[in-house]
Design a protein around this nucleic acid. Sequence first.
DNA 1: TTGTACGCGTTATCAG
DNA 2: CTGATAACGCGTACAA
Lengths: 321, 321
Amino acid sequence: MVSIKDIARKAGVSISTVSYALNGSPKVTDETSAKILAIAKELNYVPNAAARNLKKRETKIIGAFLTDFSGAFYGELLQGMKEGVNRSGYDLIVCSGKQSHLLLPQRMIDGAIILDATFSNEELLKFADLGHKLVVMDRDLDHPNVNQVLLDNKAGATLATEYLIEMGHRKLYVVTGPKDSFDSRQRLQAVKQTVGRIPDIEYIEIEGDFNKSAGELAGKRIAQEYSGPVAVFCLNDEMAIGMYDYLATTDFRVGRDIHLIGFDNIEVSGYTKPRLATIDYSKRKWGMLASEQLIKLIAGDDVDHERIYVTLVKGDSVGQL
Amino acid sequence: MVSIKDIARKAGVSISTVSYALNGSPKVTDETSAKILAIAKELNYVPNAAARNLKKRETKIIGAFLTDFSGAFYGELLQGMKEGVNRSGYDLIVCSGKQSHLLLPQRMIDGAIILDATFSNEELLKFADLGHKLVVMDRDLDHPNVNQVLLDNKAGATLATEYLIEMGHRKLYVVTGPKDSFDSRQRLQAVKQTVGRIPDIEYIEIEGDFNKSAGELAGKRIAQEYSGPVAVFCLNDEMAIGMYDYLATTDFRVGRDIHLIGFDNIEVSGYTKPRLATIDYSKRKWGMLASEQLIKLIAGDDVDHERIYVTLVKGDSVGQL
DNA sequence: TTGTACGCGTTATCAG
DNA sequence: CTGATAACGCGTACAA
């Protein structure tokens, strides 16, 4: 590999002069500087990241950590993050899985955006204590080195629940996410609060895990105990889609017998017929804001926690009772 | 940050002893080794990646480069890659965008898997010439440091075309991908070959770009010039979905008036009604194979180019004429 | 077990 | 005011 040493030799100067020239320091004549730059280009010189990182103690790379790569959901989110970090001269890498957790303490990245259930709160707090900067998008974590950019889950779940009630429904199933999911817990709490304010609502909870299969299973159970029109709030769209899928194999019709609403407004939800009612928010904005907050945190600015607002998307999957 | 120096001081030994102990070298007494490990754990020691990379001239990280993060498509593919690299002690990072191209020559990663149109062939060949190891999944590139793991586009496009012909169709539209897409060109070529073997086929080409909007536009045009049942081969599912979408706003019915087949078998394709006919392949296997090939290449093994086989998924989006 | 020379840039200090 | 010398940063691994 070509290093500054090679350039220095070829240019007949010292390595420090090369370094200064490459970094645009005014300590070098324009003439020598030009010569050095020309040689660098000619030799396809690219500075070795390890050497530079070692000295500068920064990598200008931000890591985004995801529970898995599968979410149809992540595209816009990551796009938003990338725009956010690039704007400040950082690069974004996307990681998943326990093995990649080390990238942070190894100082391979300057900070991390967490949307990844494989991190425990304790682990993150340990990182924060060691001085690493974090933005969390999937939990409530209080630490000077951690900023939160969270969805307004409570508002969303409240909107969804109120919509079902407004449409005349009085028997309500909720299909939850995994018990350890922050989003699920927040949404569930809001549902309970909303339902609690209305008398005479029959409320049934089914435990899910945010995967399609859980929606199918829940659909099966609801079909079995069916005795009249019911409303179902799946706490994410993926499960709602699973339920859709299952119900399509039965005689029950979504929007007539079983009234369905989800959360996230993922792409497929726009293609179901009837259209799945859901809760929408800008995934791109969410990602961008998270990355901007992280960069501020790294720069030493102090930042407040942020909240992403959500809106209701009506759909014929919920009919008037 | 805590370094081996801190550990050495606390343990009352030299830094080299610490290094040996941490690396499990037999050159250190079990006793001292145990003491050192205990101190390391106590201090939350994690080796600095930059320093280690600098010396070892490897990072044990593989980069996967994508044109963008949006493909609903990438989930399984990346999962496959991750499994493949983790198995050999490597880590996977996912990158997108021109700025991240530098990660390779900077030696931030030990090799790259390319599925990214923002890399030109020249750029990749330059990297290969400089000794970097690459696997390409989206082009035909011949170089000792480059391995190809490609879809069997020709088989897929032939299967699709023959299916349409078998179902009795004789007027065939093809909606292409971008002109510079390798997959699009290969698929198109196979279509032409297949069509060429059958007399009396009316064949019309519409230029697309693999995005949903291109499918909508093409659908609009086909609807305008409609004079009787036609078959349409969208060279990827995304465009087929776009066309579906548009046709749903018209009186034309997919599978009766306009017969549609795609390529990729993305998730949404399973939710259209009638089901979109398409070409399927294991995205997970594709990703895993690509990563395995790259790791072999890095290890210096010599590897042959690989091909991923495809199958036809029939669907009622194509009816018998 | 330990001293030490690396790897490759960065930058403070010093000489011309 | 230009440019060279040298001391880092932090692990690794050879020689002693």
